[in-house]
Design a protein around this nucleic acid. Structure first.
Lengths: 146, 146
DNA sequence: TCTTTTTGTCAAATTATTTGACAAAGATAT
DNA sequence: ATATCTTTGTCAAATAATTTGACAAAAAGA
């Protein structure tokens, strides 16, 4: 029963990965032309060290693009789709904060993975633990302090 | 109180994003020379459509690189570090399966985010819900079926 | 219809990446 | 110590990928 390397957990939750315009487009299904126009209009941002160098986009921006596209497909105008998406700001960072607070990840010898999600607010002696079987079925259980 | 676009949740959990060698190196702190050598030795893989085209690495490979590097820094040889890391295989996919089974994500008007993590295995009427405040403090609670 | 918004296409210029060869450092065995 | 194998660094030429801006064209709004 071995504990997972901390770096991996952090990288997984932090996700400060940068991707190219091409990859952003491929992952979201939004065309490069659209992405560049949206950036020109100020709806999304990219990182570019110097002119002519390639643009880098964060996962956060990926989420914004997915959000805008989601509402675009529902018939909203671009600016309305942006506003709709903007009303959900903070959700992904909230998910990240949930995932990054995972206290312990263990892999048992039989391949089962135990993820300690932390204490219950109103029963601090009890931890919520996810048991994930080798075929990736998840069960949530309560476990007493150990 | 608006529900989060499904695409975003899925993309977040799925993470079938591809990154460049440069980005893999920047994110992990492992040099491009190392990464290419490890690939030559068969410890990691990359996607290359045709010769001379750029290599793409998945987030899964990013995790493997972090794992190998973790044990390398502890003094293991490269092959031993790989084996150590390999013994943890399945952990990240397990985490992914945990995150992707999230049933509902809501953002309340006051900015609080509610994440329904699903039912307790032994009390199926109760759901584990994470309440995440606007300053990203997380509280786990049990809620009855609604 | 006229105008504005939004997206597509293209080519030249620039930047980024691959590839392979070789050097060099580090580890291991004799 | 010496020789050998493993591992990483450096470099330059070839190739690929990206940016940029201009313009067209489609879509939406007035």
């Amino acid at each position: 029963m071995e504990e997972l390397a901390k770096e991996g957990r952090e990288a997984f939750a932090k996700m400060d990965i940068k991707i190219s315009l091409k990859e952003l487009s491929a992952t979201t299904g939004v065309s490069p032309s659209q992405i560049r126009y949206w950036e020109k209009k100020g709806y999304i941002k990219s990182i570019q060290q110097q002119k002519n160098q390639s643009h880098a986009y964060t996962i956060h921006t990926l989420m914004i693009v997915l959000g805008i596209n989601h509402f675009l497909k529902q018939g909203y105008t671009l600016s309305a789709a942006y506003e709709k998406q903007h009303a959900q700001r903070g959700v992904y960072r909230a998910l990240r904060s949930l995932y990054s607070r995972v206290e312990k990840v263990e892999r048992k010898d039989d391949g089962e993975v135990l993820v300690d999600l932390g204490r219950l607010a109103d029963q601090p002696a009890k931890h919520v633990v996810a048991q994930i079987s080798p075929d990736y079925q998840v069960q949530l259980t309560l476990k007493d302090e150990n």
